[in-house]
Each structure stands twice: as structure tokens, then as C-alpha cells.
């Protein structure tokens, strides 16, 4: 799942690292997407748990349930948009004539 967009030819070789310059590894698109996915999943499960508790008559504030569901909704929509963009970019590159 995480590696659905891997850089062509694996990880790019570090370009002759100049001494004294700190090398920082930037996370790939796959890793970023995975983080977003995990965050969305945790928001969804929080909303799920709160609505379950509220339905069972637990001591949950009604607004907390609604806000948790709203947060889950927004992060899911964001995830879908990011996925669409990534897929569009991938297909655009695949269509490229060499």
C-alpha cells in the first residue's frame, strides 16, 4: 500500500554529498500517504468508538460524537483527494511518450 508510487529505479542515489552539509532524508510520497492513511484511520475509529459508546448510553457528550464524526469525514475526504491527485500524476507520467 505504502509503495504504490515508488521512485523509478528504487531510491535515488545520494548526489555526491558535500562534506559539512547535513543530509536529511525526505520521506517519499508513499510514506507521507501512509501517515495520512493512519491518521484518517485513527479519526474514523475514534468516531466509531464514540458513537458506539453514545448508542450504548455511555457518559459521552453529544457534541463530542458529532465533532469526531465531522473530523473523520473531513480527513477521509482529504485522503480521497490526495489519492486522486497522486493517481492522476501517476497516469499522466505513464502516458508520457518516450
Amino acid at each position: 500500500m505504502a509503495d504504490f508510487v515508488t521512485p523509478a529505479g528504487g531510491d535515488p542515489a545520494p548526489i555526491a554529498s558535500t562534506p559539512g552539509v547535513q543530509e536529511t532524508r525526505r520521506p517519499g510520497i508513499g510514506e507521507t500517504f501512509e501517515n495520512l492513511l493512519n491518521e484518517t484511520a485513527s479519526n474514523l475509529s475514534e468516531a466509531d468508538q464514540l458513537s458506539r459508546e453514545s448508542a450504548a448510553g455511555g457518559p459521552v457528550d453529544l457534541h463530542d460524537v458529532m465533532i469526531a464524526m465531522e473530523k473523520a469525514d473531513i480527513s477521509l475526504r482529504l485522503l480521497v483527494q490526495v489519492r486522486n491527485k497522486a493517481l492522476d500524476a501517476y497516469q499522466e507520467i505513464m502516458r508520457m511518450q518516450v
Binding site: D61, H63, D64, I67, E70, K71, I74
Partner: peptide, 13 residues
């Protein structure tokens, strides 16, 4: 945006 929701949630409580 989620921060706004947390602040609002504390006010509602």
C-alpha cells in the same frame, strides 16, 4: 481546522 473544532468542543462542554 481541527484545532478550531477542539476549542469549540471545549466551549460546548
Amino acid at each position: 481546522i481541527l484545532g478550531v473544532m477542539n476549542i469549540g468542543s471545549s466551549a460546548l462542554r
